[in-house]
Simulated scan of single mutants.
Amino acid sequence: MTIAATDTAPAGTSRALSCLDVLESEAVHIFREVAGEFERPVILFSGGKDSIVMLHLARKAFTPAPVPFALLHVDTGHNFPEVIAYRDRTVAQHGLRLHVASVQDFIDRGVLRERPDGTRNPLQTVPLLDAIEKNRFDAVFGGGRRDEEKARAKERVFSLRDEFGAWDPRRQRPELWSLYNGRHAPGEHVRVFPLSNWTELDVWQYIEREGIDLPGIYYAHEREVFSRSGMWLTAGEWGGPRDGEQVETRMIRYRTVGDMSCTGAVDSDATTIQAVIAEIATSRLTERGATRADDKLSEAAMEDRKREGYF
């Protein structure tokens, strides 16, 4: 797929911008703003749909030049194989630089310990902050959106993090007229969310419009899964299934992708992007609310993790 710069109408004419045009223009502006303000930005890239769209927008913002930022993946070691394969294929295809922060490395060194429930999502914070400090990243792009979860709805596009990577809602800065304040003290950094104003439906409609390729697990396929806490989970070395949890083959797809231990699938027959869009349009639950067990640990699970330095 060829990336083209955002188009403009001929001089003396005007055209109405669609919702997707406006969102794309805003995201491209944010990428260029960060490139002008910061010295060492990095893009968080997992191979999930939001980070894929974010990378597409970054390429669009700087074409025909290469993306001026490296990628960073915090690898839990419990990732879906299809997603890791997509990540590596994308990096090779576009000649990108990839940093990998491995949760397993920190476990092997005794810095982190496995959780009793087997999930490693909460363990990503320490490797993330270590990678930011070691590489002196001063701006970190994330694919978070305000519609996903109430803690993310509180966060600005430019989110200041202190020297420990922690987020304090009281230090959020106003962003009137799309003016972004990237000032930060030594040791601090800024998380940047170009997709903050997008919805899940916007993301999928943009994927359709731009012809963006995704890992196949986002579309309905047969897979061996088992039920836990009302979610369909994939069996794996992380500790599932337990005694009494029956593995069965079902037609499912994933709305979001994370650690296999806490990312649930939904029953679906949506094998095409048009069918996925129709399915999302009728859903009353966000993808995280429906399929992420780590967000259900407590009422403030996401906000607590953000205060510790999480995405």
Rank of each mutant, 00 (worst) to 15 (best):
H94Q: 11
R32T: 12
E245K: 08
G230W: 07
G142S: 14
E224S: 07
R161L: 08
D105G: 11
T2S: 15
L160D: 04
S14T: 13
D202M: 08
E82R: 05
Y86C: 01
R305N: 03
R253Y: 01
A92F: 12
I84Q: 09
L71H: 09
L17N: 07
A58N: 10
Q246D: 12
A65Q: 15
A4D: 14
D138Q: 11
A275W: 03
A151V: 13
E287N: 05
D243M: 01
P68I: 11
V257W: 00
L285R: 08
R120I: 02
R145W: 03
R113N: 14
H189M: 11
G244F: 08
L72A: 09
I277A: 00
H56M: 13
L57Q: 05
P41V: 10
E24P: 06
D88A: 10
T119Q: 05
I52Y: 01
E37N: 15
R171I: 03
L72H: 10
D21F: 03
E208Q: 12
S227I: 14
P41Q: 11
L297D: 09
E299P: 04
G48N: 04
G143K: 04
R242T: 04
Q172I: 12
V100A: 09
E303W: 02
R228T: 09
R89I: 02
G142I: 11
A9L: 10
E26Q: 11
R40K: 15
F45V: 13
G230S: 03
T291H: 00
L20I: 10
G110Y: 04
R87M: 14
L57M: 12
A4W: 06
F38C: 15
R113G: 15
R242K: 15
G95D: 11
H184D: 04
D295W: 02
L57G: 03
T249D: 01
S102L: 06
E188V: 07
